[in-house]
Amino acid sequence: MSVVTIDARRSPLGSVNAVAKLAAALVIGVVLLLSIDPVSAGVSLLLTLLVLPFARLSARDLWARLWPIGASALIACLATTLYGRQSGTTYLEWGLLRVSDGSLSLAIAILLRVLAIAVPSVVLFATTDPTDLADALAQILRLPARFVLGALAGLRLVGLLVDDWRELGMARRARGVADSGRLRRLAGQTFALFVLAIRRGTKLATAMEARGFGAPVRRTWARPSRLRPRDGVVVVLATAIAGAAMTAAVAAGTWTFVLAL
C-alpha cells in the first residue's frame, strides 16, 4: 500500500527525478533559512504560487497537505507577536505579553518564511512515489541500499498502521473494552498498536533477509533512475526563485543574516 494518494502521472512533476526535486527544495529552503525577513520569504512564496498551477494538483489535495503547516505557521506567528523581539512602538503590554512593531514584523516574517519553505517542498514531494525516491537515493546519491530499502518498506507500512488503528478501535468497542476513560483507552490501544507494529516489522525483516535484501553483493535495480534535462530545468527554476528572493531582500534593505540577529 502506498502512502501517496496523488497520481504522480497526472502532474508534469511526476516525471521529474526525485533527486532533482530534493535539490530544488533544498535550494529554496537554505536561502530562506539564511535570513529572517518578510521580503525574501514573500517574494519566494509569490513566485512559487505563480508556478503552482503547472503542478496540476487539485485544491483538495493541496489543502489536505498544507493545512497542518498553515496552522503551525499561524501558531508560531501568534507566539512571536506576543513574546517576540521588542522594538519600536508598544501596542500592548500585560505581564510577559508585549506587542510592538518589532514583534509584529518578526511574526510576519516567520509566517511567510514557514509557508515559503513548506509549500514548494510539499508540492514537489506530493508528486513523488516512494519507490522512485528510494531508487534515486540509492542509484544516484549512492546511499546504502539496506538503509534505503528499509526506509521504503517502513514508509509503505504507514497506511497499514492507520488501518490497524481503526480496526483495533472497532474491535475494542465491540468487546466492551475501555468504554469509559479516553486516556486509558488511548494508552491501551497505543500499546496494542505498538506490539502489532513490532510483530509486523519482524516478519517483514525476516522476509526481506530471506529474499536477499541484505546480501553483501552488488544489487541490481528493476527500474533505473537517471537524471534528464527536465530535471535540470526544475533545479534551475528553484535557483531562480531563490535568487530573486535574495536579490529583492538585499535591494529593499531587509536582508538580515540569521546569525547576526
Rank of each mutant, 00 (worst) to 15 (best):
M1C: 11
V4D: 11
T5W: 10
I6N: 08
I6K: 05
R9T: 04
R9I: 01
P12S: 03
L13N: 06
G14S: 01
G14H: 04
N17I: 00
A18L: 04
V19Y: 01
L22F: 13
A25Q: 09
V30D: 05
L32E: 06
L33R: 03
S35Q: 00
S35K: 00
I36K: 01
V39C: 02
S40K: 01
V43A: 10
V43Q: 09
T48M: 14
T48Y: 15
L49V: 12
L50Q: 09
L50C: 11
L52Y: 14
F54A: 13
A55W: 15
R56M: 05
L57V: 08
L57Y: 12
A59T: 11
A59C: 07
L62K: 14
A64W: 13
A64G: 10
L66F: 15
G70K: 00
L74I: 03
I75T: 08
I75L: 14
T80K: 02
Q86H: 13
S87T: 14
T89S: 10
G95R: 00
R98D: 04
L104P: 07
L104W: 08
S105W: 10
A107I: 03
L111P: 01
L112R: 02
R113H: 07
I117Y: 01
A118C: 04
S121Y: 08
S121A: 15
V123A: 01
L124A: 06
T127Q: 00
A134K: 00
D135T: 00
L137E: 00
A138Y: 02
A138S: 10
L141F: 12
L143H: 05
P144F: 08
A145R: 13
A145N: 09
R146P: 07
F147G: 02
V148C: 08
V148K: 07
V148D: 12
L149A: 04
G150N: 11
L155V: 07
L160E: 12
L160V: 11
D164F: 03
R166V: 06
E167L: 10
G169T: 06
M170F: 07
A171P: 08
R175G: 12
A178W: 11
D179W: 14
R184I: 05
R185T: 06
Q189N: 07
A192E: 13
F194M: 14
V195N: 13
L196D: 13
L196F: 01
A197F: 09
R199I: 14
T202Q: 15
A205Y: 15
E209Q: 14
E209M: 06
R211W: 12
F213M: 07
V217P: 00
T220E: 08
W221M: 03
W221R: 07
A222K: 06
P224K: 04
R228S: 06
R230P: 04
G232T: 02
G232S: 10
V235F: 12
V235A: 02
A240P: 02
A245Y: 01
T247R: 05
T247K: 02
V250Q: 06
T254H: 05
T256E: 11
F257E: 13
F257W: 15
V258Y: 03
V258T: 11
A260D: 11
